[in-house]
Design a protein around this nucleic acid. Structure first.
Lengths: 172, 172
DNA sequence: TATTGTTATACTCTATAACTATA
DNA sequence: TATAGTTATAGAGTATAACAATA
């Protein structure tokens, strides 16, 4: 990525001025930056955001079939496979057949996976603190409340990928 | 994209509970959704977000060398080329040599480009209204102020792509 | 020699479909 | 036949390097 150099000061009176400071674009771009920073925190622990999310889900539920991950994360089964393979190779998760239904592969978090998740989680927390350094405690709470309201409003829309957001708001 | 099906209710008392509702992840995921909706609005007008951004910059400045777009948008020169080619083929922008420095290609917005930008801009505005439907006017202002503060805080950091965000907060 | 723009290449991410094994 | 998982393929997006034209 080429770093930005000479910024161009926008002229005034533009037809599009209102868009420049619109919450929608601010939200999209700042959200991108937030994701980038969280991703960097995860990359430092050799994890993609989706892999971090998987570890978190396994931590919470103790063991899930890949089909469950597909449903919860809203991601294609083939993607789940490519995400799990390196995790398994690194010994962070284990795959075993479900005795009750041998089609299902139960995925569980290993002890090493638990430790790794805790480490990555701490790194993510640190990245978030840096991200919100400009806001005081009250402002952070304000922002979180607004975002939660926004999220719930979006989740109502049935025909949007945002139901996935609403259900799996965690870990990036 | 496989649509999410059965959501898994998170167990309580998780080590990671706090992360789930953390503003950082909310911000990243809701921002993603915002970007997705804005992108859809642009796609309906046969534009990628970056192309919409280019049209907006040209509108504001009346004519820019590709190098200026590179600097402002923080995007590689080769990307600028691939973005401009279809715009020029569609007659939305024009490329001509800068007489003062024949290395530079001055890019300008055509009349058709102006009209197209106005249309796409209206569509974006509509998408934003839907995005923030859950918030009343006061809440929208609150959110915008918080995001602006956050943006300014991030812009201070010199070693981040966010300076590009700060300078070009517009059009996706 | 440095800069502007272009082309070519490769790598990542993801969407789709075909395949297997189990039910 | 339907479902869980896997593999293969193709497309978009982008990062990198090499190149042509101009300064």
């Amino acid at each position: 990525m080429t770093p930005p150099t000479t910024p161009i000061t926008p002229s005034s009176g533009s037809v599009l001025d209102e868009h420049r400071t619109s919450p929608g674009l601010l939200l999209a771009l700042i959200g991108q930056e937030a994701m980038r920073r969280l991703r960097d925190a995860h990359t430092a622990h050799n994890l993609k955001p989706r892999q971090f999310q998987i570890l978190g889900l396994l931590h919470d539920h103790g063991g899930l079939a890949q089909r469950d991950l597909v449903g919860t994360m809203g991601v294609d089964p083939s993607i789940i496979v490519t995400l799990l393979n390196p995790l398994e190779a690194d010994g962070l998760v284990a795959r075993e057949r479900d005795p009750a239904d041998r089609r299902r592969h139960l995925v569980t978090l290993t002890a090493a996976g638990e430790r790794h998740l805790a480490d990555a989680s701490a790194a993510q927390k640190q990245a978030e603190d840096a991200l919100f350094a400009a806001l005081d405690t009250d402002q952070r709470e304000q922002l979180r409340d607004l975002l939660l309201a926004l999220r719930d409003g979006l989740a109502v829309d049935p025909e949007s990928a945002c139901s996935a957001v609403a259900e799996t708001v965690r870990y990036g």
